[in-house]
């Protein structure tokens, strides 16, 4: 494909990238200053001299009451939240979207609306009753309890429904001629076809699970479930005026917290490109 690329395109992209990335750069720069410096001067544009000490402390310090809350522990928990949530979401929502798009069955409309009304109410609004439900199911202080309730939303299902609906009907007809049943059609044709979509939704959902804060605080009483996000919030949350929050450590943790999601992005970019070539067969 030979499209003309104008310098203007690059200019727009560079401006857009700058607008979006500038705060990230500021976070990185700020993480190299001391807490008091940040408190006095505000956000930093240029690097400071305290990077080594701050990052060393953040990575190695053992926090919490038990002394077991290390950077590694927090990363592991955040990973479990991110991957567990993203995988769970993709599996559940692809299956449900498949049923809703490719089948005719009783009360399909009812179930369609039952699932899609869940777009409307975030967990925060029903968080107290949700806690009671989890307690009755004995799921407090478990990874299952941390992840599964978050799956009760239709974002993924909606997204895959949109994609499945735009898959050409000829594919199904051809598959049927080849003698493929619904299960075979799903796994052999739709799943590979959805690669780009899965990559996109994986990135979004991974970050969503990775960034959870309020639900884990409510749900767990055991320090071994501590996540990076709780670490960051707890640093920033000091009694106003009595002490200066360790801004530098919060920024450093935030910079570290970006690494895995960015890694996910880089890995899934390859799938973006693959998705592009494969859907072209």
């Amino acid at each position: 494909m030979m499209q003309k690329i104008k310098p203007l395109d690059h200019l727009i992209l560079i401006l857009g990238a700058l607008f979006l990335i500038a705060p990230v750069v500021l976070a990185v720069m700020s993480s190299t200053h001391s807490a008091v410096w940040i408190h006095t001067n505000g956000i930093a544009l240029l690097p400071g001299t305290d990077a080594y000490a701050t990052y060393k402390k953040v990575l190695t310090a053992r926090g919490g009451f038990t002394g077991d809350v290390t950077g590694a522990r927090m990363i592991l928990n955040s990973m479990i939240m991110g991957i567990g949530f993203a995988v769970g979401k993709i599996v559940l929502s692809m299956m449900a979207a498949y049923a809703l798009v490719y089948f005719r069955f009783r009360l399909a409309t009812l179930f369609f609306w039952m699932i899609f009304t869940t777009l409307l109410l975030p967990l925060e609004v029903r968080i107290m009753p949700s806690y009671q439900v989890m307690s009755e199911l004995h799921l407090l202080n478990t990874y299952t309890g941390l992840i599964v309730p978050l799956l009760a939303s239709a974002t993924g299902t909606f997204y895959f429904r949109q994609f499945f609906k735009s898959v050409p009907d000829e594919l199904l007809e051809a598959a049927r001629i080849d003698g493929a049943g619904p299960v075979k059609f799903f796994f052999d044709i739709l799943v590979p076809l959805s690669r780009t979509m899965m990559a996109a939704i994986f990135i979004i959902m991974f970050v969503y699970g990775w960034n959870q804060y309020l639900w884990p605080i409510l749900m767990t009483t055991d320090e071994h479930f501590y996540t990076l996000m709780r670490g960051i919030k707890s640093i920033l949350q000091v009694w106003v005026g009595s002490q200066i929050p360790d801004y530098n450590e919060a920024f450093a943790l935030a910079v570290l917290a970006m690494i895995p999601p960015v890694f996910v992005v880089v890995v899934f970019q390859r799938m973006f490109i693959k998705g592009l070539t494969e859907s072209d067969k």
């Binding site: 009451f65 806690y131 605080i217 409510l218 009483t221 709780r230 919030k233 949350q237």
Partner: peptide, 17 residues
């Protein structure tokens, strides 16, 4: 001791619990 976020979050956690 268990850190339950902010004052408000701690109270809400206590109530829910």
């Amino acid at each position: 001791p268990v850190s339950k976020g902010t004052y408000e979050e701690a109270l809400a956690s206590g109530i829910a619990a």
